Computed example of a mutant assay.
Amino acid sequence: MQHTRRFFKWAFWLVTSGLMAFCLLFGIPFSSGMAARKVVAWAGCTPASFGMQAVCPAGSLAEPFVPLSHWFTSGFAPLVLAVNFGGMLAAWASLCVALGLIWLVLGLQQAP
C-alpha cells in the first residue's frame, strides 16, 4: 500500500509540474513567442515574418503553436493558449485532480 501511495504522489507531482511548466512556457506574453518559434522551427514549418504567420504542412502537430510564434499574437498568449489548447489543458488538469484524489484517498485509508 505504501508503494502505491508513493507512486501516485510521484505521478501527481510530475503531471502537475508538467502542466505548470507548459502553461508558463506558452502562456506568458512575448516570451511564449520565442518558445513557440522553436517548436514551429523543429516541426519544419516556414518561419514567421513581419507580415505573415508561419506556415506548417497539413496535419502538422505544430499548427496550434503557429499563432503564438507571430510577434503580434504572442501578446495575447494566455488567450491563444486557452483557445488552441483548452481541451488538452482541461484533460491535463483533470488528470492532475484524479491523481491527487487517488493519493489523498490512499492516505486516508492508511491513517489509523
Score class of each variant (00 low, 15 high):
W42R: 09
W42Q: 10
A43L: 01
A43R: 05
A43K: 01
A43N: 02
C45Y: 03
C45L: 01
T46C: 02
T46L: 07
P47S: 12
A48Q: 03
S49A: 04
S49D: 14
F50Q: 03
F50D: 10
G51I: 09
G51A: 12
G51V: 09
G51M: 13
G51Q: 12
M52V: 12
Q53N: 15
A54F: 07
A54L: 03
V55A: 02
C56H: 02
C56F: 01
P57E: 14
P57Y: 05
A58G: 14
G59C: 13
S60K: 08
S60N: 00
L61R: 15
L61T: 14
L61I: 14
L61D: 15
L61A: 15
A62G: 06
A62K: 11
A62C: 11
A62D: 07
E63V: 15
E63W: 07
P64N: 11
P64R: 07
F65K: 03
F65S: 09
V66H: 04
V66R: 09
P67A: 14
L68I: 10
L68E: 07
L68N: 04
L68F: 11
L68W: 06
S69A: 15
S69G: 02
S69I: 06
S69E: 00
W71I: 11
W71Q: 11
F72I: 14
F72W: 11
T73P: 03
S74F: 07
G75R: 04
F76T: 10
F76S: 08
F76M: 15
A77R: 01
P78F: 07
P78N: 08
L79I: 13
L79F: 14
V80S: 01
V80G: 06
L81Y: 08
L81D: 08
A82K: 08
A82I: 10
V83K: 09
N84S: 11
N84Y: 03
F85M: 02
F85R: 03
F85E: 01
F85C: 06
G86C: 09
G86L: 08
G87K: 04
G87L: 06
M88R: 09
M88W: 10
A91I: 12
